[in-house]
Design a protein around this nucleic acid. Structure first.
Length: 545
RNA sequence: GGCCCGUUGGUCAAGUGGUUAAGACGACGCCCUUUCACGGCGUAAUCAUGGGUUCAACUCCCGUACGGGUCACCA
């Protein structure tokens, strides 16, 4: 077989040489240990936690080493492509604080190693496909879907491994160049297959996360180019990561089993293998067992879920970092005020088993993250979130900026700051009592305080109320009224002799708290009163007189 | 089914032949307290399993079970 003729028949328009292409993608001039990494999402419109998880790893190792982190859109499957997906993806990464040095941007490319959308790289792949054909290592295959199905059925019946290899590849492999030409002229569709070798050998790849990975050498005639001339993931991955000079390939463990194909390709081109980092799949607890997070059943898999809940990107980072590196939490405790970007991330510290996404843990981290923010920043971030997800609160926050910031500071300046806020969504609920517009009486008055007690107390409360009282003076007045009403001034007195009192000061303050905030569980009454201002305080209390 | 990966408390996990088997979240209890939080202290709870190797195994080897992945002209 004249492979040169075959190559020219198959790729008449491909005139560049591999050397010319190589020149277009020169070695990067970077510090010695700099890592070049990327994420290669396909534009399906669905961005999930795993995308972010892998993105963070790549972002960290590249930026920590003064390397390059880029975005490559793997759009080789036009059937799955969703319109606007690239933009969705870029926005999501941006929202979660993952920044690229180069790669695809909304309206094109940024960088010298593009194009960064694989479909636009068709000619590049064809040069190397042609090269493989010339080397006699690739051939056109005209098998129809039906024929392949038939082969698979036969293989299943014979308990053989499915696929096009060995004798099952012979029919296509043995076509003469004349037959091939005739098929093409007759308009038959073809794919380009790689010639797998049946050697029984094993290959060994050193994975940065998993250590040595040993598996059988590839024997499959896998597809390099699909019938539309677009490469499969395998071919595109090898060509792109070589030309774009990736040093590390971070991807999910589902790719481990196709490693032999990639290894084979890198080897036949004589290219250096990147360092593979195969990450564990994110799991979730379900019926007492672990299972993979599923797109249909688990809303928390979608990144948009966290946006909708209003979980801050910082919290997501910290959460993912705790999953990624087990020593992160320890580091965070000893460096409470440092940015998580200062954490020295290492691949070696990664766990290889599937991590379970624990929303409780996320909530806890989120509380701490918000707790550490200054009130002004909370205000801004929360408002930003409301702009998109809760217009009622967006209006409230815009209308009452000072009161809101004061409210956000309640109980936070003390040695033991409160941590009431978990998410922006939850903040809207928690903070509702600071605005008359959203105030709701949620809890019932304590049994010990009948209507008469309420009326008497609140009337006296308003009579003696002086908005300028300090916290102690104010509380002394509350105690005085409490005593007058026959309630125990000290909770312990009531506990020891409940029959001597109508109730305890606990009941009185609860009643006050409910009148003021609508709920029995709320921050300090005096502080809240001063956030609300005298007018609102008197207004709310007088409703109970 | 073939191939591959994995398995330390409810969860995340430290751990690389000799440890009282860290720490965090969660749960529970106590303390602080005008509520709720916050904080402090404490309790319960783990090496999947069976064989080896070894003076000694969570750590090394083999099998079993369980979980996961993959076997497309999807990534």
């Amino acid at each position: 077989m004249d492979y040169i003729a075959l190559a020219n028949l198959l790729f008449p328009d491909s005139t560049k040489t591999p050397e010319e292409i190589e020149k277009m993608f020169p070695e990067r001039q970077l510090p010695k240990d700099a890592c070049v990494t990327r994420i290669g999402p396909s534009p399906t419109g669905f961005v999930h936690l795993g995308n972010l998880y892998n993105a963070i790893i790549g972002e960290r190792i590249s930026h920590q080493s003064n390397g390059v982190f880029y975005l490559r859109i793997e759009d080789t499957d036009n059937k799955r492509e969703v319109e606007g997906a690239v933009e969705t993806l870029i926005n999501a990464m941006n929202y979660f604080g993952v920044h690229f040095d180069e790669g695809a941007v909304a309206d094109g490319d940024n960088g010298n190693y593009g194009p960064y959308r694989q479909r636009q790289r068709k000619e590049i792949y064809h040069v190397f496909a042609k090269q493989l054909t010339e080397m006699g290592l690739a051939y056109p295959c005209f098998l129809t879907a039906e024929e392949i199905d038939a082969i698979r059925e036969e293989q299943t019946a014979n308990k053989e491994n499915p696929g096009i290899y060995g004798k099952y590849a012979e029919k296509s492999r043995s076509l003469t160049i004349e037959q091939i030409r005739e098929n093409i002229e007759n308009g038959m569709e073809w794919v380009l297959r790689f010639k797998g070798k049946e050697t029984g050998e094993h290959i060994c790849v050193d994975d940065a996360i998993r250590g040595k990975l040993e598996m059988p050498r590839n024997n499959m005639d896998f597809v390099l180019l699909k019938s539309d001339g677009i490469p499969t993931y395998h071919f595109a991955h090898v060509v792109d990561d070589h030309l774009m000079r990736s040093t590390h390939v971070v991807r999910g463990e589902e790719w481990i089993s196709s490693l032999p194909m990639h290894y084979e390709l890198f080897n036949t081109f004589g290219w250096k293998l990147p360092i593979y980092c195969h990450t564990a799949t994110l799991m979730k607890i379900d019926n007492g067992g672990k299972r993979k997070l599923s797109k249909r059943k688990d809303p928390e898999l979608a990144l948009s879920y966290y946006q909708q809940e209003g979980i801050s990107p910082d919290a997501i980072w910290e959460f993912l970092l705790t999953l990624l590196n087990s020593n992160y939490e320890e580091w965070r405790i000893s460096n409470p005020d440092t940015s998580y970007l200062d954490f020295p991330y290492t691949i070696e510290k990664m766990n290889i088993a599937g991590a379970l996404v624990d929303l409780d843990k996320l909530r806890d981290i989120s509380k701490n993250v918000i707790g550490a923010m200054p009130a002004e920043k909370i205000y801004e971030s929360w408002k930003e979130w409301c702009r998109e997800y809760n217009t009622e609160y967006y209006d409230l926050l815009t209308k009452y900026p000072e009161r809101t910031i004061a409210a956000l500071n309640v109980g936070r300046n003390a040695k033991k700051p409160r941590k009431d806020l978990e998410t922006w969504k939850q903040s809207c609920e928690f903070m509702s009592f600071y605005y008359d517009e959203t105030l709701k009486i949620c809890d019932e008055m304590p049994q010990e305080c009948d209507e008469q007690t309420q009326k008497t107390f609140f009337t006296k409360y308003l009579e003696t109320y002086d908005h300028n009282d300090d916290s102690n003076t104010w509380f002394e007045k509350v105690r005085a009224i409490t005593d007058e009403l026959g309630f125990a001034v000290r909770p312990k007195d009531y506990k020891n002799n409940p029959e001597q009192y109508k109730g305890s000061i606990v009941h009185i303050t609860n009643m006050l708290r409910i009148a003021l905030t609508g709920r029995a569980n709320a921050p300090d009454i005096w502080e809240v009163s001063h956030v609300l201002g005298e007018e609102i305080v008197r207004g709310r209390i007088s409703k109970f007189c």
